[in-house]
Amino acid sequence: CHSECLGNCSQPDDPTKCVACRNFYLDGRCVETCPPPYYHFQDWRCVNFSFCQDLHHKCKNSRRQGCHQYVIHNNKCIPECPSGYTMNSSNLLCTPCLGPCPKVCHLLEGEKTIDSVTSAQELRGCTVINGSLIINIRGGNNLAAELEANLGLIEEISGYLKIRRSYALVSLSFFRKLRLIRGETLEIGNYSFYALDNQNLRQLWDWSKHNLTITQGKLFFHYNPKLCLSEIHKMEEVSGTKGRQERNDIALKTNGDQASCENELLKFSYIRTSFDKILLRWEPYWPPDFRDLLGFMLFYKEAPYQNVTEFDGQDACGSNSWTVVDIDPPLRSNDPKSQNHPGWLMRGLKPWTQYAIFVKTLVTFSDERRTYGAKSDIIYVQTDATNPSVPLDPISVSNSSSQIILKWKPPSDPNGNITHYLVFWERQAEDSELFELDYCLKGLKLPSRTWSPPFESEDSQKHNQSEYEDSAGECCSCPKTDSQILKELEESSFRKTFEDYLHNVVFVPRKT
């Protein structure tokens, strides 16, 4: 048989008469490798580009789960590009990614509803959504962080984005990388972005840091009482949809009607710091009717980097990364020049730590249904340095008659930039024990000054392991946590139920 035959053949030295091919099969003959313009397919066939392209389009058009959109890589027609490569849609070739590779997620039936953290986790790592997304989240724990972890990498949506009755959302900033909504599939009414009845939605994105392009379709905003109209108009300008909307697409009466839409800028007039305090004062603000001013709200939190936005980490279910302080308005003076500047002394802060701070007014709604208010920009203030805590785990070892090696770990709280350490030492008198000992005694162990690591005695271990207080009263049991108490109650309830079950099964009433 021919060298490319495997198993047997019907005619000697003829690659077209093989029972099976050793390498690849091409047009009725066995070959060692697939010549151009053919590609290896499933490690035994040679196919042309049209064959591989037909497989790709067949799966793409069917949208069946589990099928493969075949691509070409290293002269092979394979189910998908290997790690580190992405497909070129024009020629199906796998090309190296520039940075992290995109991950295209194809949605069944063309859309997916995100109504819980669990459903959001199914899209973790996706960068391109081939379909439409509907966000409908009523509640949950730590929602802002969970949504950002699972949806934060999405850069492109081919269909539309719909935010509907998501009472738990305060902001859409968890879509931190969303840059493009194509609108290839539109919501009824030709809408590519749809926001309806979101009672706590206050911000779409921080438009000073976020760009969003909507290729096709219109915007729809109705019944978002805490979303200011200025935020919607800003989205029109940034996304390129200005002029597409009709009169009733953006409701003037049901958007922002319960919001404090600040239209003035508060400026800080005085800032002073110490290692654990920050004193702030800002310019006074009074609405047209000074009785509408209820006070100020001061927001602050630790910020290692200057990239904080107002609604980071917030949701309507209680999660809030900001510390909020309510401040009463100052006494009002008739003389504008003698107006008191409101302020606040922030206490209990960490030394040498940068804080993000902003302040906003708290006002009631005027009778004319106009909203007044003022808010400052987010500023960054760093507390002063102070003395560091003591170095940890000092170790001293003498390696000769004239040297001592000293080692330690950095302090747990540096409280500033540590530039150097101060080492103090003092000579001590020799131990009298060394002169009084009889060095001729056998088995004498000389006193040693070398360091030995501390260890816990058996008594201390027994005390720590004991669940009861000892007789001397030195140790006591740790208080039980809520989960331990709940577990004990469940076990007790189970024992009672099981005992009742045994009584009912074992003891049967005697027939009379």
Rank of each mutant, 00 (worst) to 15 (best):
W408V: 01
G256E: 10
S274K: 12
V363F: 06
V170I: 12
Q382W: 05
R176V: 12
D292M: 07
E246G: 15
E231D: 15
T213V: 14
I404Y: 01
D328A: 08
S173L: 09
L186G: 10
R369Q: 05
G131N: 01
A259W: 09
A195G: 11
L180T: 10
N190K: 13
G110F: 10
Q403K: 05
L252T: 11
G256D: 03
E148W: 15
I129L: 15
V359R: 00
P391Y: 04
R176N: 04
G256Y: 05
R281N: 12
G139V: 15
C261R: 02
T113V: 09
G243W: 03
L107S: 11
Q339P: 09
V363G: 14
G131A: 04
L201H: 00
P391I: 05
A374D: 01
P410A: 15
A168G: 03
E368T: 12
I137A: 11
C317W: 15
I271A: 04
N190G: 13
S239M: 14
P288M: 07
E109Q: 15
K242M: 12
Y167H: 04
F290P: 15
F311E: 15
P330Q: 11
A251M: 10
W352I: 15
F193H: 01
K301C: 02
R347N: 09
T213M: 08
K337W: 07
N190R: 10
Q258C: 08
F290S: 11
Q306R: 12
I379P: 00
L345C: 06
S274R: 09
L151Q: 00
L172V: 15
Y305S: 05
A316F: 12
L265Q: 12
N263A: 11
E156P: 00
L201Y: 00
F268N: 00
Q245F: 05
S321R: 13
F175T: 01
D249A: 08
L293G: 05
P394D: 05
I154F: 01
S389Y: 05
F268L: 07
L293Y: 02
L362I: 13
N130K: 06
P330E: 11
D335E: 15
L133N: 00
E231C: 14
T241Y: 11
N136L: 11
R182Q: 04
N141P: 13
G131H: 01
Y380T: 11
P411D: 04
T215I: 13
R247L: 10
E264H: 11
T383Y: 01
I157F: 02
I137T: 13
V325A: 15
Q306F: 03
A168P: 15
L227K: 00
L143P: 06
T127V: 04
F299G: 05
S319F: 10
V397T: 08
S333V: 07
L279M: 11
N211F: 04
P411F: 02
R165F: 15
L108S: 12
D289G: 05
D276G: 06
N136H: 10
I154G: 00
K409C: 14
L266N: 00
Q314P: 02
D257T: 00
L172A: 07
P304H: 15
L212P: 03
L252I: 11
Y380M: 04
Q121W: 02
E122P: 06
T386G: 04
H233N: 06
E187N: 09
S402M: 15
R202I: 01
A251I: 08
H210T: 00
W207Y: 04
T383M: 09
L219M: 10
G125Y: 03
D257C: 13
S401F: 06
Q339C: 14
A120C: 12
M346H: 01
I327C: 05
R244L: 13
D377S: 07
W207L: 05
S173D: 10
R370N: 15
L266W: 01
E236L: 07
E262M: 04
I157L: 05
L229D: 04
V128L: 11
P287V: 10
N224K: 00
I378P: 01
L293R: 03
E283V: 13
C228P: 03
S319R: 12
R244C: 06
L147N: 03
T254N: 14
L151K: 00
W344A: 10
L349Q: 01
K234V: 13
A149M: 10
D206K: 14
Q199M: 14
G313L: 09
N150M: 07
L143N: 03
D377V: 10
K209S: 08
L186D: 05
L294M: 14
V363D: 07
D206P: 09
E302I: 06
V170Y: 09
P287R: 06
S333T: 10
R179N: 05
L133H: 00
E155M: 04
G295S: 06
G343H: 13
V324H: 13
L107C: 12
G140M: 05
F220W: 08
S158E: 05
D312V: 07
L252D: 07
K162E: 06
I379W: 06
I157W: 00
S116G: 15
K407W: 15
L123F: 11
W205H: 05
S158T: 10
D377Q: 05
A144S: 15
V238S: 11
S158M: 10
Q216R: 05
E264L: 14
K350L: 11
P304M: 11
I114S: 01
N198T: 02
Y372L: 12
L212N: 01
V381I: 10
R247G: 14
A316Y: 07
N248R: 14
A149W: 15
S171W: 02
D292Y: 07
R247Q: 10
N190I: 15
E155D: 06
F296D: 03
D335S: 14
Y270V: 13
K267R: 09
V308K: 06
K267L: 08
N136M: 04
E302K: 09
K209H: 14
Y194Q: 09
D115C: 05
L392C: 10
Q403L: 07
D292G: 04
T371D: 05
P351I: 06
L229T: 07
I357S: 01
L362M: 11
K360V: 08
G217W: 01
L279R: 09
L266G: 01
S402F: 08
F193C: 02
T371L: 13
N255F: 06
L279D: 07
T215H: 07
Q258G: 03
W282L: 06
I114T: 01
D289E: 04
H210W: 09
E246R: 12
F193V: 13
A356V: 00
T113P: 05
N130L: 13
F358Q: 09
T118W: 08
K226N: 13
V104Y: 06
I357A: 10
Q203R: 09
I134L: 13
S260M: 07
I378K: 02
S260R: 12
N248P: 11
S389T: 15
Y372V: 12
K409A: 11
W207A: 04
L392D: 04
D292Q: 15
R369G: 04
E231R: 12
E310T: 11
Q403M: 08
W207D: 05
L252G: 15
K350H: 13
K267A: 09
W352P: 00
Q354H: 07
L227S: 00
F221P: 00
K209M: 10
D249P: 09
T215K: 04
G125T: 03
I379R: 07
L298K: 00
L151A: 04
R291G: 05
A259M: 06
G183V: 00
Y191S: 13
E156F: 03
S173C: 09
N190T: 07
N387R: 09
R332Q: 15
G183T: 02
T118P: 11
K301A: 13
T215N: 15
E237K: 12
N307P: 09
F311Y: 15
L204K: 01
S239P: 01
K234L: 04
R281H: 09
Q258F: 04
G240N: 05
K337R: 05
W286P: 10
Q203L: 05
F290T: 05
L201V: 06
S173P: 02
K177P: 01
P284R: 08
S116N: 14
W322Y: 09
E146V: 03
G256V: 07
P391E: 03
I134F: 10
G313R: 13
W344R: 07
D249W: 11
V104T: 04
S171K: 08
D326L: 14
S173V: 06
V325G: 02
E184I: 09
D115F: 05
C105W: 01
T241A: 12
N224L: 03
I357R: 00
L266M: 09
D335V: 07
D328G: 02
D115H: 15
N255A: 06
K409N: 14
L362A: 05
E155T: 06
Q121I: 14
T383F: 00
E262A: 12
C105T: 00
W205T: 02
W352Y: 02
L147M: 14
T185W: 12
D292R: 04
V324A: 14
T215Q: 09
D257M: 13
S119L: 12
M297A: 04
E109P: 13
S274E: 09
K177S: 09
D312N: 05
K253I: 12
Y380R: 04
K253A: 09
G343E: 15
C126G: 00
Y223R: 11
K277Q: 15
N248H: 02
V381P: 05
R176A: 06
L227C: 12
T213P: 02
R369A: 04
H210N: 04
